[in-house]
Design a protein around this nucleic acid. Structure first.
Lengths: 223, 223
DNA sequence: ACCTCAATATGAGATATCTCCTATTATTAT
DNA sequence: ATAATAATAGGAGATATCTCATATTGAGGT
């Protein structure tokens, strides 16, 4: 993790800095700085107290929840403009999540101890914040109800369509399995199934969608 | 559904009315009234626009999410002091949930059209509201990660322990199955299993916990 | 260049869970 | 009260998904 002065950062990323200014009151920004995390680095660690409210400015990250039985579940991907550690702002109990950078990430870091009071009295911030929480609630609910009501193959189809770029799907299988909610073994089995059913074509380690329509039907139907 | 004047209600339920006054600004309460719903009545219906922000004052209700494939999933139970329709306050898209009264319910109804602006500018309300959303987010995440990482029998054990009163568990099986996330058939099978394993005793339509310790172990372990 | 660890691949067998069917009881509505 | 509907109960068979074992390939570190 590398700290960078906010002003230095602002000079190079004017647009992003403008956005930040709209989200946070000036007094709070005075206390803030930039954190850079490299790929696979932990941004927040299970069981450790959260000192900062992070706003993801660049890069992608993933949230794991850590269970009592030691197992982890990948519950959400984070991208630009999403918060990390935001629940500490409203006095939630222990942190039970790991947040890990997927690629190199830049975050705005706001020290909670000195800025909490200030943020909670800023109506504009609170309004945006509520909106953000509501949105996150919906997204997470969606994700999980999908888990519950659709089978693995349906969920996988949906996921591939979400992730795909130019008909191409390439993502670490371990990560896919964790997010879609199944075992690695079963993921492989299902990918082969998709191949046999003429949905995907495999080239090296990439998969290409060759029947998008069918994949879409599979993603939303039970059949 | 039966509407009641807020003042009439206030006379009979002084304590509750005091709580309400702490949650909502006066100007907003002027527009509000009380709604009574009877058991099994729909408080909010899938696909219909939400006109009111409800605060549950008495009774219990349940939230279903309605899927594209027509299936419903019971995702949360609501009790006193929980909001209904709160996401409309922050401009969420279509309503995809049914909310159904479990027993007779009394709700405070705040008309969104006239009060929205007001609420979103009230710092105390916003603060409470953020907290509420954060809490709901955590609860729901917990519920669902349980779903994903534990088997039906573990989830059922946990649920029984949550619901149980005086070692007695009685709840509609249909509802239990929907919430715990399994088929009715499998619930029956698992309850019999619990009986054979000396965890529960069945008397008529009630189940009694006869080995709580073992049930607790089952609820949090994978074994 | 070599070693190590993570990721990819696949087989075989076990089991958790589902679907469909059919009765028997409660509850609710007419 | 009687019909209609929902809840309880369990049988039989299918399958979605898991666990464990093992081999190969790729990437990062020294």
């Amino acid at each position: 993790m590398k700290k960078i002065n906010l002003k230095d950062y602002a000079e190079n990323f004017v647009d992003i800095y403008n956005d930040i200014q709209e989200t946070f009151p000036k007094a709070v920004l005075h206390q803030a700085f930039i954190c850079k995390f490299s790929s696979n680095e932990y941004i927040v660690r299970f069981d450790e107290d959260i000192q900062y409210l992070f706003l993801l400015l660049d890069g992608r990250a993933k949230i794991y929840i850590v269970h009592e039985n030691g197992k982890r579940a990948l519950i959400q991907f984070l991208k630009k403009d999403e918060f990390i550690g935001e629940l500490s702002l409203i006095e939630m109990e222990k942190n039970i999540k790991d947040v890990v950078a997927i690629n190199d990430c830049a975050c705005l870091a706001v020290p909670l101890v000195s800025s909490k009071e200030h943020l909670l009295n800023d109506n504009l911030f609170l309004h945006n914040f509520s909106k953000y929480l509501g949105d996150k609630l919906l997204k997470r609910t969606d994700h999980y109800t999908d888990m519950q009501d659709y089978e693995f193959k349906n969920r996988l189809a949906k996921y591939i369509l979400q992730i795909e770029h130019d008909e191409c799907f390439q993502k670490k299988h371990t990560e896919t399995a964790e997010y879609v909610g199944g075992s690695y073994r079963h993921l492989l089995y299902t990918l082969n199934q998709f191949h046999e059913d003429g949905l995907l074509e495999k080239k090296g380690r990439k998969y290409f969608i060759i029947n998008k329509e069918k994949l879409e039907r599979l993603s939303s139907k039970k059949d």
